[in-house]
Structures are given as structure tokens and as C-alpha cells.
Design a protein around this nucleic acid. Structure first.
Lengths: 217, 217
DNA sequence: TATTGGTTGTGATATTTTTCACAGCGCTAT
DNA sequence: ATAGCGCTGTGAAAAATATCACAACCAATA
């Protein structure tokens, strides 16, 4: 497994998305500055990032989109498609399922789990949903590595502990709770509250900047 | 408006949440290393971060939680409670509404907007929901600065443009689309797909690390 | 064939962020 | 008193990340 900066990885993922869009528009080659522009990056960063994964372009035509997408995939994805599970089938859980059903990535939601008996053992938005009791055995039987945690804050810690115990190595956590898990488990926190507070902060900063600018003119 | 590193701001927001939890448990003082432990940070970072906002603790008792929460609030929040709007009332929109109804922050979702006539002009999870046609006038009349964008990918760009035109200065974007807007608008992207790919990548790295370790033993 | 123009890949440099490490402080205990 | 302890605040060093800037390249054109 290569060592890579977190920020670089995020950008690589983004580049791939933008490249897929370009490719479906019929584009075949792209220059670093174009890719930078549509990804909110800079050309130097793009070139460095691609250097990290050992990809080379041509000085004349730039990067060949198709092969670059492949190289990015080789780097980012596992060799086999990856099954993930979803824990929590409330509004957010449903949103996540719908979101990933549309997409044809190498990532598939294999099943959802929810403690609410009313929802269980059925299909939610086309995804099989079981009672939480079955979660650990499902993980073990299907060798699941990654889980999306979309349960209420109060249930998050217990659910995460169960996931870790069953052998999960990555959790995408939407609950506004800090999970304390052994460092064999990678946790990515996506807290809406934090995101909104951050946005509000910068919105304020942005407005003040504009106001100030007007003051000078 | 103070200049502050993005990462520092994120940590400050996190500290506040953890401090609120500690306070409600009855704790009154906290040391930098305790706050670090529950926030996934380090004591040196905590001290630096609090230095940034000019907060001082005592060498003997540490930081007084109550006053620190207040200082953090003064720094992070606007002086008045902030109204935000939600664009898109699908599964994700509903999840966001429920999520923020529970919370008693200085951030309130004033209204939701959706182009689907069937859902509109009613209450969704207790939040008033109107037709998208009314969005721009609502923003102007209520001086809304911040919007949460939770529409399908195909609609995101148009919606964002409308928001920017109406004077929004901050967008929390859940659509998997790069928004191109004037730099007077701050955009915070929260792309689920990217988050999941990232988690999967590190889950794989984590598993390989463990496997390797076992190989040595 | 020579020149031009626009790009890549990458050393070198600059900037940002984190960590180290310790002086100085105030309480406690002797 | 005063010695000792464990903390904070912060200069200074280190590490991580981003930017600069340019040699090398190659197609197109003269």
C-alpha cells in the first residue's frame, strides 16, 4: 500500500470524477491546467499529484483521459469491487442508499441494518435491510471491511464497537459523535453540524470581505 | 473577521461539542490533554488552537469549561442566531431537517425549497417547505446568507447559481458536483461518494497494516 | 532544418501546520 | 517558607504541503 498524503488522495478521487465527466462528453485528452480548473486545484498540484501515482502525460497533448482514469482506479480502488454495509435505515440511510444505487462505482452497498423491527427484513430503496442482530454474522460471512454509520448519536458508539468487533476496518461516520476505536479501524467523520457551522463561519467572513471591498470603492 | 486556519477552525468546533458534553456531565474544568484525548487531537494542538482565539487557562485547574464554551461561541458563531435554508427535500433533505431540529444551536433551518409540487407548501418534519420559485425572494426578504444544497447532481449547478444570484454567501453542498461560483460565495463540499472512496482506501490500508503485523509475529 | 509555442516533470523554495521542549506559574505539602 | 509537581503559553524546530520556475520535449510552422 502506497503512502500518500490525505489531501492528495482526496484530489485524486476528485480528478477521477471530473475525468469521467470529460470522457463522457467526448474529450480524450486534458491538460493539467484544465483539470485543475474543473477540480478547483492548480496545474502544479495536478502534476505533482499525478507524479505521486507515477502517471505521465505528453507535453503536447497533455494527459490521455482514458488511461489516466484507469491509473487512478488502480491506485484508488481495491482490485475487486468492494461491498459495504449501511448501519441505520432512517432518512439519512435511505438517502445514502438512493445515492449509491444510481452510481456504478466499484463500491456496492450489500445490505442495510436497522434495529427498528418495522423496517427490517425487507427492501429499502431496493437494498436488503435486516435486523441489527444479524449484522455481525453478515460482516463475518461476507468479509465486509467498510461500514457507513448513519444511526442517531445515542446509538453510534455501541454500533461502532460492534462493527469493530466483527472485523470492520473502515467506518464512514455520519453521527455527530467521536468514535473511540482501536487504531486498526479507520474512521472518517462526516458531521453535518460541523459542516454547517464551518460554512456559516466562512459565509460570514465572505460577506464581511465583500462589505469591506465596497467600503473602499 | 479573524484569519484562521481551516483545520484550526474545525478543531475549535469539535472542542466546543466535546466541552458541551463534558459540561452536561457535570465537569467544570478540563486539561488540554483531556480535551485532546476526547477530540482526537494532541495537547499541544489544543493549547495552540486556544491561543489562536486568545483564551487562557490556569496552570492548576486547566480550562474552565463554561467560559471556554462561551469564548469558542464568540469566535465561531455570528452574534445573532443564523437562519439557513435547505434546497431539496428528498431523503437527504429530510435527514438534514430532522438532524437540526434536535439540536438547539445558533443555526436554524428557516425553510426548505423543492421543485416537486407534491411536496411543496407544507411542512416536512416540522419545517415549512415551499416551491423553488419562491426561493430567491425568500432569501432576499429574510436576508439569508447560508444554504444547504441537497438536490440531485443534475440540478445542483442551476440551484447554486440561483442561490448566488440571490445573495447567498455560503453553500454547504451535498451534491457530487463541483460548483463554479464567484469567489464571494464560500462552498463547502460534502460528497458522500468521495467520503466512501476515501474510507475504503484507508480501510484497505488499515487491513494490510494489520495483516503485515501478523506476518511479523 | 531551424524556430516557435505551449506543455510536462521535477528540483528548489516558500508557506503552512504540527510538534518539541521548556520557562514560568500557582497550588500543595512538608 | 520553600520545594516539588504538573500544568499552560509559546518560541523554535521539524514536518508536511504547496508553489515557483525552468529544462526538456515535441509537434507545427516557416
Amino acid at each position: 500500500m502506497p503512502i500518500i498524503a490525505v489531501k492528495t488522495l482526496e484530489r485524486l478521487i476528485l480528478y477521477r470524477r471530473q475525468l469521467l465527466a470529460l470522457f463522457s462528453e467526448g474529450k480524450r485528452f486534458v491538460f493539467s491546467h484544465d483539470l485543475a480548473a474543473i477540480s478547483g486545484s492548480t496545474s502544479a498540484k495536478v502534476r505533482r499529484d499525478l507524479m505521486e501515482i507515477g502517471y505521465s502525460g505528453s507535453t503536447v497533448r497533455g494527459y490521455e483521459i482514458k488511461s489516466l482514469i484507469r491509473s487512478l482506479g488502480d491506485f484508488i480502488d481495491a482490485s475487486k469491487p468492494l461491498s459495504v454495509i449501511l448501519v441505520g435505515a432512517g432518512d439519512l440511510g435511505k438517502a445514502i442508499i438512493s445515492y449509491f444505487l444510481e452510481r456504478r462505482e466499484k463500491l456496492v452497498i450489500a445490505a442495510a441494518f436497522d434495529p427498528d423491527a418495522g423496517k427490517t427484513d425487507g427492501l429499502i430503496r431496493g437494498c436488503p435491510c435486516f435486523h441489527t442482530d444479524r449484522m455481525q454474522s453478515f460482516i463475518r460471512e461476507n468479509d465486509i471491511q467498510v461500514a457507513i454509520l448513519a444511526v442517531p448519536a445515542g446509538e453510534a458508539r455501541a454500533a461502532a464497537a460492534a462493527l469493530a468487533e466483527a472485523g470492520i476496518t473502515g467506518i464512514l461516520n455520519y453521527a455527530p459523535v467521536r468514535l473511540e476505536l482501536p487504531d486498526t479501524v479507520y474512521v472518517e467523520n462526516r458531521d453535518m453540524c460541523m459542516a454547517l457551522e464551518k460554512t456559516a463561519f466562512y459565509a460570514r467572513a465572505s460577506r464581511e470581505r465583500v462589505t469591506m471591498r465596497e467600503g473602499f470603492s
